[in-house]
Simulated scan of single mutants.
Amino acid sequence: MVLKLYYIHQSPPSRMVVMTLKALGLDYEEVIVNLFEGEHKKPEFLKINSRGKVPCLSDDNYVIAESRAICSYLCNQYEKGDNRLYPTDPKQRGQVDQILYVSENTNDMMMAYINVGGVLFRGEKPVEEKIGEVKKALDLYEGYLSKTGYIASDGLTLADFFMASPLLMLDLPGYDDFKDYPKTTAWLAKIKALPYFDESNKEGLTKMKEMYQNALKK
């Protein structure tokens, strides 16, 4: 078995795949694809993933892209035991799948405010008019967490990884208005306390915040 992950540390979806690999205790080879130098658009990478996106995973001769699909595949293929990141019970898995879809929407809502592309490449700022979208998303988190200890159930699942991802990005502009969301704050603290969290996220988040803040200063 040779798992090979094509990614870059600054990419939030890439980091969620890294978290899944580490949670499952899987060894893998890293291949850094530098998006800032256009390596994802070069012919050699487009042969691997025609969409020109990271992350992308190669498992021997099997290649899969899209972070949620990659993480689901890894769990389907390699996860063992009863307390699973991706449950096998259809109803439990359905709940995880549902929130994996929701996480795309919450990501869009928060990114509309953070405006990463605009800040890094077009000299723009966070879009203050979109603060309301952030609060709408946080209302969803608080609602889910009023029912269960984690975002999709009382145990840790892939849904937690992908719902945590956009929340972590709110640190780029320094957003910290969580006073009305105590359950969300406590849940995110549990995610950050996972033994593989820093190893999976610290470098990428630090680099991304540095780039973002430097662009704002300019």
Score class of each variant (00 low, 15 high):
I32C: 14
I32A: 14
I32E: 12
I32L: 15
V33E: 01
V33D: 00
N34Y: 14
N34K: 14
L35R: 10
L35E: 10
F36R: 15
F36D: 14
F36V: 15
F36Y: 15
E37T: 15
E37N: 15
E37I: 12
G38W: 08
G38R: 13
G38E: 06
G38S: 13
E39Y: 09
E39W: 08
E39L: 07
H40C: 08
K41M: 15
K42E: 15
K42C: 08
K42P: 11
K42A: 13
P43Y: 01
P43I: 01
E44I: 08
F45Y: 15
F45Q: 06
L46E: 08
L46F: 02
L46I: 08
L46V: 11
K47H: 08
K47A: 13
I48T: 09
I48C: 04
I48E: 02
I48S: 05
N49I: 04
S50G: 04
S50Y: 05
S50N: 10
R51I: 14
G52N: 07
G52P: 05
G52T: 07
K53R: 15
K53S: 12
K53P: 07
K53G: 05
K53D: 08
V54C: 03
V54T: 09
V54Y: 03
V54K: 02
P55R: 01
P55D: 01
C56H: 01
C56F: 05
C56K: 03
C56T: 14
L57M: 06
L57K: 03
L57N: 00
S58P: 01
S58F: 00
S58L: 03
S58H: 06
D59H: 12
D59T: 10
D59F: 00
D59N: 07
D59C: 04
D60L: 00
D60Q: 08
D60I: 00
N61L: 03
N61R: 04
N61A: 05
N61W: 01
N61V: 07
Y62N: 05
Y62L: 12
V63N: 02
V63G: 05
V63H: 03
V63C: 07
I64A: 02
I64F: 00
I64K: 01
E66R: 01
E66F: 05
S67K: 01
R68Q: 12
R68N: 13
C71Q: 00
C71I: 00
S72M: 10
S72W: 01
Y73K: 05
Y73W: 06
Y73I: 02
L74R: 02
N76F: 05
N76I: 11
Q77V: 09
Q77W: 06
Q77H: 10
Y78W: 07
Y78V: 04
Y78E: 05
E79K: 06
E79V: 08
E79T: 11
K80L: 12
K80E: 12
D82M: 09
D82C: 12
D82I: 14
D82K: 13
D82L: 12
N83W: 10
N83Y: 11
R84V: 09
R84A: 11
R84K: 14
L85M: 12
Y86R: 07
Y86W: 06
Y86E: 04
